[in-house]
Nucleic acid binder design. Sequence first.
DNA 1: GTAAATTGATATTTATAATTGTCAATTATT
DNA 2: AATAATTGACAATTATAAATATCAATTTAC
Lengths: 144, 144
Amino acid sequence: MLSDTPVYPISVAARLLNISVHTVRMYEREGLIVPFKKKTGHRLYSELDIERLNCIRRAINQSKISIAGIKTIYTMIPCWQINKCSEQARKNCIVYNSNVQNQPCWTIKNKDERGECRKCKVYNNFADCQIIKAAIINITKGNS
Amino acid sequence: MLSDTPVYPISVAARLLNISVHTVRMYEREGLIVPFKKKTGHRLYSELDIERLNCIRRAINQSKISIAGIKTIYTMIPCWQINKCSEQARKNCIVYNSNVQNQPCWTIKNKDERGECRKCKVYNNFADCQIIKAAIINITKGNS
DNA sequence: GTAAATTGATATTTATAATTGTCAATTATT
DNA sequence: AATAATTGACAATTATAAATATCAATTTAC
């Protein structure tokens, strides 16, 4: 089990991934990752963040999915299913109630009952496009 | 309602789309489209095919989703839901029974009870990535 | 029967996404 | 207090996906 404790500054994260600091920041701007931020604005990355970034790199370099494509796929995750949100929670959730989002749920500001995105199953378990596909298939297979 | 009758040869289709004949063939090689083919191998495109191709072009040029990304998204369509396949049909369907496909269902050869892909709702109604997203959301919202 | 169009396969070109570089200002570290 | 690292913003570069060109063989259509 990978640790989700934010420990690596961006320079170390970039070195672990064999990419530049700029690229790591770009993935954040594009909404693919949500690193921990200190009050001063400095970023910190966990082991889990590194694994997530590796996954994104594979999608780009091996699967040839563009960043915009990855973002679109992330937006397809039915988070209320993953999190088994209650009727009440759904009623209050901006993600659930706006089909037309073009943003992954973790990029949408919290005005509802959702907790911290960095700790959420949706953010942590569905970095891989293949896993997202499998999840959608599983969920829909339950139906008649 | 757009006609699904195959009428345009590839040169006309390409002209309607402002792209080259080669590009149209490429989209087919990549599994994004399934044009009608005469016994001689010559392709024919319908109005619906043209609209589908326009949709693919928008995904590439405006949404900046790569061809590999579009293909991955197409692979996420839960076709058995769209087509309301029976238990029996699912049991016999290679698409339903192999989660690990990396191909849209219409590129997988028919050895089961599925009909002609060009006539299928899944192929015809879900060219647009946004619509696929909406469909997945709808289907999963039905669940508890 | 002949000119125009289509086919597949390989090679080339082009467009642009992805990545990196530079900079001054701010923050961290010892 | 001084050096190293990080920040955001803009510019430049690189890598490669997307599109096009070329070719001989086959098919279409008048």
